[in-house]
Write a protein that binds this DNA or RNA. Structure first.
Lengths: 208, 208
DNA sequence: GTCTATACACCGATAGAC
DNA sequence: GTCTATCGGTGTATAGAC
């Protein structure tokens, strides 16, 4: 038992160090750009020498991979919460979900680039790190399926329109709201195209 | 006169070298990623040593800048041609323009990243290099104005939807057509939202 | 003018002492 | 687990040959 709790304490400390490294990495990515991240900078801010990072991550790519997983896990939580909160109409449910994703994405360029764009050439997330991204997409699928939107093309169109607004916002007016305030209009446009009623049935299926 | 033609020949040769350097740079950007571009690689493939590039470009950033200018100049030509060719309806004119931009953009990820995304952190194009980008946007403005679409929000929405499709295509199905074939549908959706008639008046204004 | 040679400070990564 | 030392790369810059 004592041995076990000692082990736990060591594992806990290791995990804390890992988290601190990742926190610092995000901080630096926001300051200097995702691709300008250097192991020396990370290590220095954590209070180590660069090679010591290799005791916690096997490579720089592994750090990117852990950052990718963390970002999508966070996004999954945001989206799950948005999908779970009540909405007055099918469109309101869509707006809620889209707004949650937009605000989460637009608040951090570096994070969005790592999650969705190919900014780090050659970076491919591992299967484990990709899992929360898939889970997030499944939240979206379920929300659209509740409005009887199930065709892949319809889903793809929604994804493209929303991420188009995010991209435009981040690339052309970072920190502003020039494209952000177009989101609700875009959702209505999509809802029109997909035949989702403006009001009427609640967003949950088969409820009495 | 002889002096002049000699000067011209030298300038011509210099310009040819510049073009060759830029061609090689694009080639390597496509192979290895935009941010993985190195002066040594460029120089080696051109048949020089790295420092010799400084006789033609004052820095690596100047190479990016020239690439940016070239890409937008090419895009401007494509868009001008698309805007000039006749169309049967206002929507057909919009489809033509959008299709031209989509195909141009989706055919080269690195080029699209340099033109439209913030992949190279800290890179800001010079005013001269930005000019063809502005001119391209003006082609779009003029085309939309011909359909009485002049509000900034309307234009922003069009830009976001089209570039959203391009981003999704490049990020999730590079080389494929999963989002490409949604373009015409997206344009119709936009046209509906903007009140552009499906058929009727030609795309030119005030023609008898 | 254009090139080669060389140098500098930095990068990711590894080896091995402690 | 963290360190120092070091490796082959990188962008950048200068000196000097031709």
């Amino acid at each position: 038992m004592l041995v076990n709790s000692n082990r736990d304490r060591i594992a806990e400390r290791r995990e804390a160090t890992r988290r601190e490294i990742l926190d610092v990495a995000w901080q630096l990515a926001r300051e200097r750009g995702l691709s300008q991240l250097t192991l020396r900078d990370i290590a220095h801010r954590v209070g180590m020498r660069a090679p010591s990072l290799y005791s916690h991550f096997e490579s720089k790519n592994a750090i990117y991979d852990a950052m990718f997983a963390g970002a999508w896990t966070e996004c999954l939580a945001v989206m799950t919460a948005a999908a779970g909160s009540p909405a007055d109409s099918p469109r309101a449910a869509m707006r809620q979900l889209a707004r949650a994703f937009f605000d989460f994405s637009a608040s951090d360029l570096s994070r969005y680039q790592l999650m969705n764009q190919r900014t780090i050439f050659g970076f491919e997330p591992s299967a484990e790190s990709y899992a929360p991204a898939v889970a997030t997409l499944e939240v979206l699928h379920a929300a659209l399926a509740a409005q009887n939107v199930t065709r892949q093309a319809d889903i793809d169109l929604c994804v493209a329109v929303i991420s188009g607004l995010i991209d435009a916002q981040l690339a052309n007016d970072p920190g502003g709201d020039r494209w952000s305030h177009l989101l609700e209009r875009a959702i209505d446009m999509l809802a029109d195209n997909l035949g989702i009623p403006a009001r009427g049935t609640r967003s949950t299926r088969r409820s009495p």
